[in-house]
Design a protein around this nucleic acid. Structure first.
Lengths: 344, 344
DNA sequence: TTGAAAGCGCTAACAT
DNA sequence: ATGTTAGCGCTTTCAA
């Protein structure tokens, strides 16, 4: 950074007050058209760049929001960032990124960083490891709006954008039933993560609705990874399921590998469904039946929610706000035992 | 944002000067241990949060860097962000994100936003559409270090981190030759994008080294997408190649679809290699031979380069700096005609 | 080792 | 429609 042109320079150049320059630059109505033009012209000529830091300090509005995610390396979050940044940048806001790496300590640090940077809002997805939520409460205390996406937690009482995990799981399980499966296993995730628990519930309720007994033996819990999916499936294979609904796509992928290794045919012997609609699902063999979560839209909606809160007088009214996106079943080869294109 | 605790409050509380508080908080050596402790203690008690905006304005150091990428939705860039953010956050720096959406106008806007935000550096990947590079020169003029990654451009004379696209392409093509292929086609990308051009050159040189004639007929240029890959391959199929090296993985995927649709076997009739090591390549059938670009490391190295420049006296000396990461051939089913695990 | 004071660049009363 | 002025919260000389 070198000493740059300020509004002072422009003011001197035109022999007018800095206040007028400031007003002209910000399109304040009470400024003569001719002055405005003159100011903007010299600004351009001097190659003036507004200093948002100074503006922030004075106005108390940083025009920055913080986005806290587990990892930018995960496709899902990259996609959400994409949606968030799009809306923010359309509204003249900047996006600060912080990754928790699924670690509570980092998450806490991220919130502190945001607070120090005086972000005007935080959009966050809670890390898998996080159980204590006090650091989020700190935001509320300082009146910084918090909006959760995907990994939300109702206990915080903040607005959130989530996909209806329950219904997504219900749809996926129902689909497997409709394909004729009766011994449908489930590979679950960490149950303190709300979305994983809801997917389990959706699975159970779908079985109930179809009067299929829920067998504890057919439910195992893993760590949400390819490797874990493979291991869980190896356990399940001994219990002879005719389908498996995995808590997400990588788990499903591991399950597929285990099933293939065991010499069974998909979907003929065992049908498979995942959750998340990761890119690879479309290209593997067999292609993977899954649930689409509308990631890009999730980011956009979370960003919009932020602006709604920002512009509302009665902020508290919005704290109950919860936007639930409808998940979409994407049925592909891994589950289609019956020739049927209804679901696609 | 509400009126928060400032160092003034702490100073009053302890009846000392704000300067002392500032020094204590920043671990300035010339401050008595007891005062430092007292200050930090009251800071904590009053729930003081430093205001980085004020600090930035005064010190002229924002502790923010800007990252400009085409889209966070693309896995590759998510992965790079991951690496960048990791290093930055370890060094107490924050990361501002801006997406160009591959559009020149957005890219320009991003640089302006960064300049206004007084970022201390910019790490960027040039959009595919960008030909005019003046907006980058503006950074140099204002002494804001620019570091390019992946989509670099030597004409700018700024440090960069890239993968050796030429050698990656050379390795992939050589590998196809070693597998016994002789009529190796290439589906290229937009040739004004340096990395695509280098991949073409790597392909050509590999053929030359092995004394295989380069046939113009076997080279077609696409738009770097699944659909484009498919269309290009359909054209190539009429020219009877026994292998195809695609400029990147999605193009390769499209090519695979076209080859399968034509009833040919991979790799027996036509071997396929891509570039980028996208996640799906490992899971498709046949799994895709490709070139790994070390994305996470690319981000880390770019970030480290920034700190090197920041801490160096002779900044100009570093402007020639170019870090070339060695690409890694990942040979998988789509090209392995010979039983041979040497390359893996 | 500490304090006093200036001021980073801007905005927003208040005054004219 | 424009000018004057007082800071926003912090860091950093300079002085003690």
């Amino acid at each position: 950074m070198q000493q740059s042109v300020t509004i002072n320079d422009i003011a001197k150049e035109l022999k007018i007050a800095v206040a007028t320059v400031s007003r002209a630059l910000n399109d304040h109505p009470a400024v003569k058209e001719s002055t405005r033009r003159a100011v903007k012209q010299t600004a351009k000529r001097l190659n003036y760049q507004p200093n948002t830091i100074a503006a922030s300090l004075r106005s108390g509005r940083s025009k920055i929001i913080g986005v806290l995610i587990p990892s930018a390396e995960i496709n899902f979050f990259g996609s959400v960032i994409h949606g968030i940044e799009k809306v923010m940048s359309n509204n003249g806001y900047n996006v600060l990124i912080y990754q928790s790496n699924e670690l509570y300590e980092f998450e806490k640090k991220g919130i502190e960083t945001f607070l120090r940077s005086r972000v005007e809002g935080v959009l966050a997805s809670i890390s898998k490891e996080t159980i204590n939520l006090d650091h989020y409460a700190a935001l509320k205390k300082r009146n910084v709006p918090l909006i959760l996406f995907d990994r939300a937690n109702d206990a915080l009482g903040v607005p959130s954008v989530v996909v209806d995990d329950y219904r997504g799981a219900f749809a996926a399980t129902s689909h497997l039933i409709q394909q004729g499966c009766r011994r449908i296993a489930h590979i679950g995730g960490q149950q303190h993560v709300a979305i994983f628990n809801q997917r389990l519930r959706g699975y159970i309720d779908a079985l109930n609705v179809y009067n299929i007994p829920v067998e504890d033996d057919l439910i195992v819990y893993g760590k949400v990874s390819i490797q874990s999916g493979k291991e869980c499936m190896q356990v399940l294979l001994e219990r002879d399921p005719d389908a498996v609904f995995a808590v997400e796509d990588f788990t499903a992928l591991g399950a597929i590998q285990a099933i293939k290794a065991a010499g069974k045919k998909i979907p003929h012997d065992i049908a498979v469904a995942g959750f998340a609609n990761e890119a690879f699902g479309e290209y593997i063999t067999p292609s993977l039946t899954t649930v689409n979560q509308q990631t890009g839209r999730m980011g956009e909606e979370a960003a919009k929610l932020f602006f709604e809160i920002l512009n509302s007088k009665n902020k508290d009214a919005l704290y109950a706000r919860k936007l639930v996106l409808e998940p979409q079943l994407v049925s592909r080869e891994s589950s289609l035992k019956i020739k049927n294109n209804d679901d696609e």
